[in-house]
Design a binder for these strands. Sequence first.
DNA 1: AAGGTTCTTGCAACCGGTTGCTAAGAGACA
DNA 2: TGTCTCTTAGCAACCGGTTGCAAGAACCTT
Lengths: 320, 320
Amino acid sequence: MAATIKDVARACGVHVSTVSRTFSAPHLVNPATRSRVLAAADDLGYRPNRAARALTTGRTFNMGLIVADISNPFFPPLIKAAQAQARGRDYHVFVADTDEDPRVEEELIRTFTKQVDGVLLCSPRLSNKMIERLAEDVPFVVVNRRIKGMPAVLMNVAQGARLALDHLAELGHRRIALVSGPIGSWTSNEMQGVAAETPGLDLVFFGPNQPTEAGGLAVAPEVAACGATAVLAYNDLVALGLIEGLSAMEIGVPDQISVVGFDDILPGRLNRPKLTTVAMPAVQAGRMAVDLLLQSGGEGATVTLDTALIVRESTGRAQT
Amino acid sequence: MAATIKDVARACGVHVSTVSRTFSAPHLVNPATRSRVLAAADDLGYRPNRAARALTTGRTFNMGLIVADISNPFFPPLIKAAQAQARGRDYHVFVADTDEDPRVEEELIRTFTKQVDGVLLCSPRLSNKMIERLAEDVPFVVVNRRIKGMPAVLMNVAQGARLALDHLAELGHRRIALVSGPIGSWTSNEMQGVAAETPGLDLVFFGPNQPTEAGGLAVAPEVAACGATAVLAYNDLVALGLIEGLSAMEIGVPDQISVVGFDDILPGRLNRPKLTTVAMPAVQAGRMAVDLLLQSGGEGATVTLDTALIVRESTGRAQT
DNA sequence: AAGGTTCTTGCAACCGGTTGCTAAGAGACA
DNA sequence: TGTCTCTTAGCAACCGGTTGCAAGAACCTT
């Protein structure tokens, strides 16, 4: 059995409150007493029970981080950045994965409530309404979603999409396929919005799709058949799957079809051809999300981070 | 403010203990009362505070999962499998990443203590002695490590290494480079052990290395210079980095050097050349680890899972 | 030496639940 | 109708800490 505050108190003949203060308000206890207590605590291997402490103080010094899919290489750098940032603030981050399932997402949030001081919600699949309701029980920072009055870290997807479309237009592409992501994805909507209002393009929409390689692989035949000479994919994973699917059909990238992804994940940099993509500032986002959560007195500050087009090998001149 | 058990009790004029029992021992309360309580609870949006409950019951229905590096694609499938399995047992899994740093690992374990019912420790970097000591405070299941008397899920690395070496020998390779992982890695030791006792091989050891692409990239020049015609890499990430580094030096894989990895991660399947590798049963391991944690009354059951060689394109006949 | 500060510590209530014990009330049975 | 179970619900202690309040001790002032 782990030692409790009582054991320590008994061990050095002092009241529990003195032991408690030794740890949470050292300046209130006599240096001599303090060192006696510390010695006894060390001796017994005592460590304050964080859960019990949280019960009275209301603060756990933990935060939750919920992502749709840890398998997506986009998230790990964000997670690591958040953990590192939190550690510097004396906080710990617990991560959970929703498997892209809104119900799991809701359940996880409920579980986190009261066990953490706040939750970082990355690319949520829940409806805005539901998120707002859950926000009554635990503070949120949402990443990649805009919700009125709620602190958010956004990546400038619109800007990225514009850069990507300009790049494709410059290469002579006119008929462009837009392969979107899952329902409820803010990113998807942003991309479609920008594309739709860009003049001079002949767009073909495909979606919703799973935001994974499998999703890309699955739409490859349709994309090939639609006559587009270029594709803007929901993310790099989809782009990679798409390229895989196209090459299985003997369609060359970028010779016959150009492909642009989003995120700039590592596998895209190793792929042949190396993926042209819109880089998302995942590391910055992770850091900002933590800061926002700790600062926000419930204030709805929104931070928007810039994106950048990285041209590699998966885009080329349109076939004439 | 979230509703507490008291609010519910007041709302329907019963004692708090009755409300408590409505949720934790429904059969002890009169159906009529029960439904009144449930109605009131629903009305107030009451949810039991899991942390408070854990204080008296000693059970949190949470478990921790600590990995060395979430960025390594090997872990996400394991994590997801564990979460899914735990969910089926009414448990939740909180994940944390140590960044390959033993001190962070220790701190995370300490944080988890008392907030979870047990911890799954994947590929730990801490010493056996330290792990044994920490095990006094919270139950563990270790994955990829053998510690006396502690429940463990092992993958048969030795078997996999043997298969890989046999495969290379059959292709005519004799001088083989062994690129190991970080210090404190059980997997690395297993590999080296098998290789050392295999007769007829001319081995060159390289290590310790970071278990990442960067690690593989960094040793590529030395490996190229050592005259080996084949490499057994610590994991797929290292193998991928190695291939990248070798091709940057215009050394063809598998034409000039054959490369075998470990894990069977997704990027290895998409790489050109597709990676020959020893598949590790990550999904099974995640599931088993959860089961072991929930079963073990502190018993030290050990489960060993089989591995399999998957021959793809990164291995070929030795140059003559 | 009396009165006022400042330090230090103990007391006890509280956070949100759980649970062993007890007693009131209902129903069964003679 | 009296006695004996069996349900059902309340009481109160407890889990491991925190914290406002108050009292005693030590130290200063004048």
